[in-house]
């Protein structure tokens, strides 16, 4: 999923304080699972903002809505008839949702309510960690299904570096060394010999470096 973190409420207040009527829009997908922007978080933010503005002597109307997704036209269309009455929207979707809503509703300012962090997993309740950076050219087949691009602080394709200590990364004792994980798993799979295969210089053009990316599937296009 896409993992996000709630923005500090002060930051949101600063952005919207001059408006009179606001819609807080949550998203039922990733941000719900990582407890940053689902229906619950919409309710909490709306309630807290209402109290803040009352307490500060300001009239502010705040409504709530949570869409199935904010990255697809049909769900964003659901608010077409009501969105015109708001001065602005605070979207608790990831950065994708914020932008897609803004593309669709061009005359209404859309503010981000979360910081979009990474693509990752729920390692345990309340702990989310990164697994993928969407490089567009998956190498997991070569690295024992552990991604050094997203999990090694130096993105080393032929690691580990000299800083790997007791299985941990040189930048933090709380961070597993991705290459230690790769080597451990190669051992478990009885494939440690594969370690010596050099990974070639990577074509980063399918990654961010190549500019904004696009996938077109003519076979499913209508």
């Amino acid at each position: 999923m896409i993992v996000a973190e709630k923005k500090p409420i002060e930051e949101i207040i600063e952005e919207i304080k001059d408006y009179k009527k606001i819609l807080i829009a949550g998203c039922n997908e990733c941000v719900t699972v990582c407890e940053a922007g689902g229906k619950k978080e919409v309710g909490v933010l709306a309630s807290a903002l209402r109290m803040y503005f009352i307490n500060n002597g300001k009239k502010m109307e705040i409504d709530e809505v949570t869409l199935e997704r904010q990255c697809d036209h049909e769900y964003l269309e659901e608010i077409r008839n009501q969105i015109g009455q708001y001065d602005a929207v605070v979207s608790l979707a990831c950065g994708v949702g914020v932008q897609f809503m803004a593309e669709k509703y061009r005359r209404i300012p859309i503010y981000p309510g979360v910081n979009t962090s990474f693509m990752g997993v729920t390692e345990e309740r309340g702990v989310w960690t990164e697994r993928c950076q969407g490089c567009g050219q998956c190498i997991l087949a070569r690295t024992a299904s552990i991604c050094p691009i997203s999990r090694c602080a130096k993105r080393l394709l032929n690691g580990p570096c000299g800083g790997s200590t007791n299985g941990k990364c040189e930048i933090s004792k709380d961070l597993d060394c991705a290459w230690q994980l790769i080597i451990d798993r190669l051992k478990e799979l009885n494939r440690l010999d594969d370690y010596e295969k050099l990974l070639p210089i990577k074509d980063w053009s399918t990654e961010r470096a190549g500019g904004p990316r696009k996938v077109v599937r003519e076979d499913v296009r209508l």
Binding site: P160, Q180, Y195
Partner: peptide
């Protein structure tokens, strides 16, 4: 290039050198 015979994991320290030689 550099080689660290003492870094972890020790078991791949020589394979790692072999990899640099191959490079």
């Amino acid at each position: 290039a550099a080689a660290n015979p003492f870094a972890d994991p020790f078991e791949i320290r020589v394979p790692r050198l072999a990899k640099k030689v191959a490079a």
